[in-house]
Nucleic acid binder design. Structure first.
Lengths: 231, 231
DNA sequence: CGCCACATTGAAGGCAGTCAAAGGTGGTGG
DNA sequence: CCACCACCTTTGACTGCCTTCAATGTGGCG
């Protein structure tokens, strides 16, 4: 299990806090464990607090009334979940499910709010965190309005590539780290279409597929596709 | 011109502030006017502060690299723009254009940050505001992933109806308040498709169209369509 | 009256979703 | 080590909604 202080510092929400600040945060956290497949909370549940992921992977998703699932984020160690729900004073806007056996720290809403009233720094961090989330979501909204799946997939691959290497080059290996069906849902499509799109890209020698690893062969064309040029 | 105190109180961001708090906020604001069609800021510009709309209507939109425009929000009096950009410490994630001659109050980033450090209440309000925006965006993401335009249109009509009357009934008149092309873009589609979808709804006597006013004839069916049942 | 912007309507074509079935893969137990 | 099973992934055929392109209709305003 990861050391908690380290975890806290890694999250921008708590960075810049002094030792006493960190200690106070620690005081109000409680550890929770979730088995793979279990639901942390569901869309519409009362939001009583939020979570800091310690180990594992959490899927944040929304279910539309007719049962369709859209995956908003996949959250890993060091990241927080449902920060926003705490302050909106309403229910969770999305559901969360553990994709693996996971450990999380839980922060109670009332306790955390009290802490914020004492610490302007924590408040500012929180706002920065929320703003960044907002920016990310805005990006996703734009991605979704990119009508072609190929464009969304290309954008996803580029983003992943940039996470791995700041100057991505051809030959870069990108591990998918999730089931293809999940990725499909993350891209706003379904498994079959993703499969076909990947196949087309492979055929045009833009990428190479080795199991769950995508190897980029032509970064330039990938960028063009992400910008809406037809595949 | 609207009285500023009233405007401030109407925005959740500043609600719950006492007189001295409001006075401080007033101190750091400066009025700006924009002609219809003028650009307040563009996606990618340095974010130096944010705006409170006093009069008029502002379009918040994103341009994808290939020139496609997606309208994220239409903002009216009492609402704030670009609050998030202030704290993300980055550039504006979207562009803003005045749809009518508009008046806005501008709040400088540094001044406002200083204010927040002094006022925990303002900080909490801000967080609530950001959280609500986040929730709204999450809703939009879901709307977009609703594949059918008819579903998105139905949802839009229902939302507008609920804004007008908390218990919407058949016969309710909904003014569109924007060009059909703009609404189309807001719904993630184009004018032609919107026109066809409206025509189909009219033909099935779900709505009635009188110029730029939509009259709801069958609320029940509209709800079903919004949930994905085929039109 | 005529221009211009906006809105509607028509025809054609493409992309993606659905349904169905086959092909792979990993894990378990014999 | 292999056989079997469950689950994931790929592929194929088909349908349908939406976009694109083009033409016609409509309303406001000089």
């Amino acid at each position: 299990m990861k050391e908690m202080s380290e975890l806290l510092k890694r999250n921008p929400l708590f960075s810049g806090l002094d030792e006493s600040g960190l200690a106070k945060v620690k005081e109000i956290t409680s550890p929770h464990s979730y088995k793979k497949g279990s639901i942390l909370f569901s869309q519409g549940d009362e939001a009583h607090g939020f979570y800091l992921v310690s180990e594992g992977k959490i899927k944040i998703y929304r279910l539309s009334p007719n049962g369709q699932e859209y995956v908003m984020r996949i959250v890993g160690p060091g990241e927080t979940i449902a920060e926003a729900a705490v302050f909106s004073g309403k229910t969770f806007p999305a559901s969360a499910e553990a994709l693996e056996d996971s450990r999380l720290y839980y922060l109670n809403k009332a306790d955390f709010t009290a802490l914020i009233r004492e610490s302007p720094q924590l408040a500012l961090n929180m706002m920065t965190g929320l703003s960044l989330l907002l920016r990310e979501l805005a990006q996703q909204v734009e991605d979704l309005s990119l009508k072609e799946v190929s464009a969304r997939l290309a954008r996803f691959l580029i983003e992943e590539a940039e996470k791995i290497s700041s100057i991505p080059a051809n030959g870069l290996e990108i591990p998918l780290e999730m089931k293809k069906n999940l990725l499909a849902s993350r891209l706003g499509t379904i498994g079959e279409t993703l499969s076909r799109t990947l196949a087309k890209m492979k055929q045009r020698e833009i990428i190479h597929i080795k199991k769950d690893i995508i190897i980029i062969r032509n970064f330039e064309i990938l960028k063009e596709i992400a910008q809406g040029i037809k595949l």
